[in-house]
Amino acid sequence: MTNWFEQGGRAYARFRPEYPRQLGTYLAELAPEHRVAVDVGCGNGQLTQLLVPYFERVVGLDPSEDQIANAAPGSRIEFQCAAAEELPLADGSANLITAAQAAHWFELPAFYREVRRVGASGAVVALISYGVLKLEASLNERFQRFYREEVGPYWPPERKLVDSGYATIEFPFDEITPPALNIDVEWHLSEFLGYMLTWSAVKRAKDDGNEAVLMAFANEFAALWGNPDRKRPVSWPVNMRIGRL
């Protein structure tokens, strides 16, 4: 029994998928001006960095000091610790307000009040997430069963909002229909299992003493994968709720 999860866990930061560059371009095209963009719940700045080429000032905000410590500031980008419900920006100052893979943790009514306060006339607000990944048919069925049935009970309730692309949440803005976008990578087996190790559900299963289920899946999946050095395509749909103030 190879301990695939322990192997992947040594490089946590490598395994979160990057948003496509087209996403930053699209959001900038929607913004009425390009003075200030703010990315709320920014984590280590994956989406925040995509906005830098288009805006005079980009602000990344996250309540976690650890996440902010791992973000990279620059000449037009800054990071601060702040909650989504108390944005440290002046009234009417932001042309674009984004939240990527984060809005399901917000107290949305308070966040929306802040969006209206800091948003300039015609500002754009974008809630972004990526859905359940897809693999080649030979791997996908086994993965989906693990995701929904075996580790599924360990997901927090908020995960359902991500899986639905935020389709069921209140979104009180003039809505814009976004284009279809995907995150596409090619990964080795260790990269794929390393990504799975970053899931909160996998961590909770381990903490619950159910690591045998994880290991059984990992070794069965490794057999289906074949040569662990073979790269295979992995794809996530990018889901967006986009509106204008």
Rank of each mutant, 00 (worst) to 15 (best):
F5S: 01
L135E: 00
G74F: 09
F55L: 11
P153S: 06
A167E: 02
T98A: 08
P153H: 09
F79Y: 15
A180I: 14
A120T: 07
N3Y: 13
L96A: 05
N140W: 13
T168A: 08
E86P: 04
L181K: 08
L214T: 11
R148T: 00
L193M: 11
D229C: 07
F173P: 04
A110M: 12
M240K: 06
E114C: 04
E186W: 11
P153C: 03
R76N: 15
I77G: 03
Q22Y: 09
P233W: 07
P88L: 04
M240V: 04
A72S: 15
P20M: 12
A37D: 05
V59F: 08
A120L: 02
K203E: 10
E211W: 11
P32H: 12
F221Q: 06
G43S: 04
E211H: 08
Q7I: 14
A102F: 06
A83P: 00
L61W: 06
L133V: 12
D91H: 11
V40A: 01
G152I: 12
M215C: 11
E86V: 14
R244P: 06
Y12D: 12
N239L: 10
A102Q: 04
R148L: 12
L133H: 14
L127Y: 01
G209I: 08
A37L: 02
R35K: 14
E141V: 13
A90K: 14
G8I: 09
A137L: 07
E107Q: 15
A72V: 15
V124G: 08
G24R: 05
I242W: 05
I169S: 10
L224N: 08
G152C: 07
F171C: 11
E220M: 05
E18C: 12
A37N: 02
L23N: 01
A223H: 10
L127N: 02
G9M: 14
W4K: 04
G8T: 04
A28Q: 05
V213G: 10
P157V: 01
G119S: 10
L108G: 00
I77N: 03
D174R: 13
E33M: 13
P53V: 12
P172R: 10
L135Q: 02
E6Y: 09
D163K: 02
G209L: 04
E158N: 02
Q49P: 05
E65P: 07
L245M: 15
I68M: 08
G194D: 05
P53Y: 02
V118G: 03
A11E: 14
F143E: 02
T168S: 13
V162H: 01
R57V: 09
Y19W: 08
G243Y: 11
L50W: 07
R10L: 12
S64Q: 11
Q80G: 12
E191A: 13
G243L: 06
L181C: 14
A37C: 11
E114P: 07
R16Y: 01
R76G: 05
